[in-house]
Design a protein around this nucleic acid. Structure first.
Lengths: 207, 207
DNA sequence: GTCTATATTGAGATAGAC
DNA sequence: GTCTATCTCAATATAGAC
């Protein structure tokens, strides 16, 4: 492995960066190997040397992106504090991760919701499920500790998930609205405290 | 216009139905006119007779789908009852609309988040914005009436929007979880009443 | 090896008969 | 309104000159 100056990117990183940008803008199928190597200022064989194929590059990109999510999920086990604090921490870390990997998130999004268009299979859903399970764990513990109301754990998790997802969504589609961690944090606070004035009774599992 | 038996679909409708299914599964560009007409059991000139072009068919599909959303949004003006009831009604109507137009929603999603892939421009965002404005209107009125807490109207709207969006999301990607109006309704209830137990104080605009 | 000219293909679109 | 048959056009593939 070559030693690099601190501000330089390795060729491998340049290829990954350029590819993620192209994939997110044009889609996997529409992005040619030519464009990727041109973006990185190298020639085709370099790409094949590092990644074996266009598919290999794609997998590397996704694997490296989602390994950070894995790390985040593992770190949840070590969270200290009450449920409120844990939820806020999870939301914050997740949002930071998203901000740092916008392009990979875009690729994931269009794969997840749109037609596959020749993109190799990648099990995004496994990560989605893992994330939901983690969230659910925090919520279930919160209910046991009586720090959350005794309602349906799954639905409570979904409400939190919806808030995170919407923040991500708006961040991607309306950057000019400047959705950031602070706003997400206030939104989570609203979910915890309720946006209705007292009078409707507290949420319970009575249906 | 031909008179049809009550259980028969007109050719025009068959073309629209087949096209929306194909567009949602394969994407606009990857769907050929041949496939669309084959699906409807007619020949190409029929498509051109009704829609002038593939683009015309696409626009008709989107326009007809989103005109229902327009109708829904207009109907909000006539909502009766308190804010809680209005929000529940909006969520319910929106979810029903989504269920009845899954394929169009899918097409919209992949256009909105993915690369355009040759699909003609359609201003989905205008509808998105209109919807948010409507939601915001209900929330703002709720705050004035003191039926909602005096917090940031935009962020409160987003939390509700996030809940609807997540329900739609799960409905699209995990039909086996059977997210339905009842679940969405309970999720909205959770947002209104808060999932945290009392002790963290009510939400306000202190910040 | 590279370049240019020429197939080939498959897409969207149309004319005119019925 | 619907069909058969045909057109146009662009992208790609290939042949053959250089």
């Amino acid at each position: 492995m070559k030693i690099l100056g601190k501000n330089k990117c390795s060729v491998r990183d340049r290829l990954l960066k350029g590819a993620s940008s192209l994939f997110s803008r044009k889609g996997y199928a529409a992005t040619t190997v030519r464009e990727i190597v041109a973006e990185a200022g190298v020639t085709k064989p370099v790409l094949y040397y590092y990644f074996k194929s266009k598919e290999g590059l794609y997998f590397t990109l996704m694997r490296e992106g989602f390994s950070k999510l894995d790390e985040l999920i593992r770190s949840v086990g070590g969270y200290e504090g009450n449920t409120r604090e844990k939820l806020h921490r999870l939301c914050e870390q997740t949002f930071v991760l998203i901000q740092e990997n916008v392009e990979i998130v875009r690729v994931m999004y269009s794969y997840y919701y749109g037609p596959r268009q020749g993109a190799p299979f990648f099990d995004f859903d496994a990560y989605h499920l893992k994330f939901i399970q983690t969230l659910r764990g925090i919520v279930a513990e919160g209910v046991r500790r009586k720090e959350l109301v005794d309602a349906n754990v799954e639905e409570m998790s979904w409400v939190i998930l919806g808030t995170i997802t919407l923040a991500m969504d708006l961040y991607l589609t309306h950057p000019e609205w400047k959705v950031d961690q602070e706003k997400l944090s206030r939104m989570v606070k609203l979910v915890l405290q309720g946006i209705g004035t007292i009078g409707g009774g507290r949420a319970t599992n009575d249906q």
